[in-house]
């Protein structure tokens, strides 16, 4: 059943994800029409000229989906990066510093996590200027709480290891210990989490754009495209489903890959424990 040692689910996931990433990178070369170019009537059905039909303003749906992949993936990736850098740095600092600093930061994180992220994001976005930078920062900071908890938990385990003790006795400073001892040992766990956080960001961004509070038109992004075309649904026009299905497929693919990686690492660990 396995293809090159990869489970069929994960293989499909990898195939789909690389397809999306490649088409996002080469968007201007492969799209038949421009991002905001009006090329036909409103909500034209699927035809040879327009593979997925046209949208609410007569723009080519396929071209917009490919351009939308660019926006959605870039912003979700940027927000994940913010979330990881911030969460991992603060989590490791908290674990290494301990005492009051750790208590204070952990209680702040508890506070941020005590109400659902989307509700918090809506409150904050109601007063912040509606730029892409704000969006990335708000999403990144709110999500960094989860990375913080993970990074702190992993770092607490690592800092009692003998090699960290040795480094301390050598007289290394805290920053050196975090960068040279804790970070390299925690990185594999953090990378495994990266995929799941990234897909959470894609869903989060799409939900915000769908509610009209994410990326502003005319720029194409998948959640926003669902919003643009949602009026057609009640007339039986499925244009809104195409970008929504892309989000769903991407999420399923990343989940399948993450599932496979988790199973693989845990079975490897099991084998080495037996030996």
């Amino acid at each position: 059943m396995h293809i090159w040692g990869i489970s069929p689910g994960a293989f499909f996931g990898l195939l789909f994800c690389s397809g999306i990433v490649l088409s996002a990178i080469f968007a201007p070369l492969i799209t038949p029409y421009g991002e905001a170019e009006i090329v036909g009537g409103v909500w034209e059905p699927i035809s040879q000229k327009h593979w997925l039909g046209t949208d609410n303003l007569g723009r080519d749906l396929l071209s917009r989906i490919i351009y939308g992949a660019r926006t959605t993936l870039t912003i979700a990736a940027a927000a994940t990066l913010v979330s990881f850098t911030l969460g991992a740095a603060l989590g490791m600092i908290a674990a290494e510093a301990g005492g009051f600093v750790d208590q204070f930061m952990s209680r702040c994180v508890d506070l941020l996590m005590s109400i659902p992220t989307l509700i918090f994001a809506l409150v904050v976005l109601s007063v912040m200027p509606g730029t892409i930078l704000t969006l990335i920062l708000v999403m990144g900071i709110l999500d960094s709480t989860r990375v913080y908890r993970l990074a702190r938990a992993v770092a607490v385990d690592i800092r009692v290891m003998d090699y960290v003790e040795a480094a301390k006795l050598r007289g290394e400073g805290r920053a050196w210990i975090i960068l040279h001892e804790i970070l390299p040992n925690a990185i594999s766990t953090l990378i495994a989490e990266f995929g799941l956080r990234f897909i959470f960001m894609v869903l989060f961004l799409s939900a915000l754009s769908f509610l009209g509070l994410g990326i502003q038109p005319p720029e194409a992004d998948w959640g926003g495209m669902v919003k643009e075309n949602k009026a057609g649904i009640v007339f039986g026009i499925p244009a809104a489903l195409a970008p929504a299905a892309m989000i769903a497929m991407l999420a399923i693919s990343v989940n399948l890959i993450a599932d496979w990686i988790l199973n693989r690492t845990s079975s490897l660990r099991g084998k080495s424990a037996d030996a």
């Binding site: 939900a207 669902v226 649904i233 499925p238 809104a240 489903l241 299905a245 989000i247 999420a251």
Partner: peptide
Amino acid sequence: TLAAISLPEFFIGYVLILLFGVQ
């Protein structure tokens, strides 16, 4: 369930509308 947690709420909603509301 793995598939279902990956689906955005609006996708499920619009599929249901299209199926049970329109078709």
